[in-house]
């Protein structure tokens, strides 16, 4: 089992004819992901390395039965691409695009929540999702992931997710699904969404969660964990030494006044029974211990 995507997920790539879309779309296909179509307005009827390209998502869905979309288009086109996918009935949209204005994000987040509740958005500004051995949508390197579980990973950071995957894989510990929820202020999918899905997934036995400064989603996750999650959770929060008022690379990674500090998040998670690690390496080590005890 895996969460959100698996070997049966049929994926279209919005922006397949662009440099990024082509590069990652073809890599995802090479990994074994069912990339069934591309969508670029005006390029319908062409193909990218044998993958048919359509003008609209609606057409692509009707002709391929796709249920997921990988959005890899520039920031100014991303909002419409996401909304188009939702309108066409796509149930899982992964948007890797960085630098989308916050107003646009707030707009399509609320539009999806109100009018397209059947569509889950992952991102924007995220590395994507990989269910090792089954499906890889986005920019994660498939080579570092190890299939078979039992660890689920959810993270706001791309490279820290890769680091975590890599450390677990090297210890022979596989992953069920690794979800990069992204570093923007209005993420489509939250820690809680992923924690709920991992809790329900029988193959996932433990969850590694990587948060960072800014916002209060980690605190909300802590509350959720204490009430609803029975599986062990290990957490690392990046930015313990970050100065307030500065955007630390990610648009959402900012301490505003006294809100959004790593300490507040770590305290909340620890109080919820989460194993809170001081750094990514320690998080990996704690997870290795937990998994070894499970065996």
């Amino acid at each position: 089992m895996a969460i959100f995507v698996d070997e049966n997920t049929k994926v279209i790539v919005q922006g397949l004819t662009g440099g990024q879309g082509r590069f990652h779309g073809l890599r995802n296909r090479e990994y074994g992901t069912k990339i069934v179509a591309g969508v670029t307005p005006g390029k319908g009827g062409t193909d990218v390395d044998g993958i048919p390209v359509f003008d609209t998502v609606e057409e692509a869905v009707a002709l391929t039965g796709a249920t997921a979309s990988f959005v890899s288009v520039p920031p100014r086109f991303a909002p419409n691409a996401i909304i188009e996918a939702a309108k066409a009935g796509i149930s899982f949209v992964v948007c890797i695009t960085e630098f989308i204005p916050t107003k646009d994000e707030a707009y399509f987040f609320n539009l999806l929540r109100d009018e397209y509740p059947g569509t889950r958005l992952l991102g924007p500004n995220c590395p994507g999702i990989i269910s090792p051995g089954r499906c890889n949508i986005g920019i994660t390197s498939g080579a570092i992931a190890l299939a078979g579980g039992p660890v689920g990973i959810v993270s706001r950071s791309g490279t820290l997710t890769y680091q975590a995957i890599h450390e677990l894989s090297q210890q022979g510990i596989g992953q069920t699904t690794c979800v990069g929820i992204g570093g923007d202020p209005v993420p489509g999918t939250t820690f809680i969404d992923c924690l709920a899905a991992f809790e329900a997934d029988v193959e996932t036995k433990a969850v590694l969660m990587i948060g960072e400064i800014g916002g209060s989603d980690e605190e909300k996750a802590a509350e959720y964990i204490s009430e609803h999650v029975s599986k062990p959770v290990v957490a690392y929060i990046a930015g313990q030494t970050a100065p307030p008022g500065k955007k630390m690379g990610h648009a959402g990674a900012i301490i505003s006044g006294s809100a959004g500090t790593a300490k507040a998040k770590m305290d909340a998670l620890a109080a919820a029974g989460v194993y809170v690690a001081a750094n990514p390496t320690a998080a990996g080590e704690i997870m290795v211990d937990i998994v070894k005890k499970l065996r």
Binding site: T159, L160, T161, A238, A242, M248, G249
Partner: peptide
Amino acid sequence: ANGAGLAMATLDVVNQVGGEAANFLD
């Protein structure tokens, strides 16, 4: 470092081994 998260984590780790970062650079 490459990646905002990894850069932040690098700052954290430098701090934990008794040093202080001169900058954040992604």
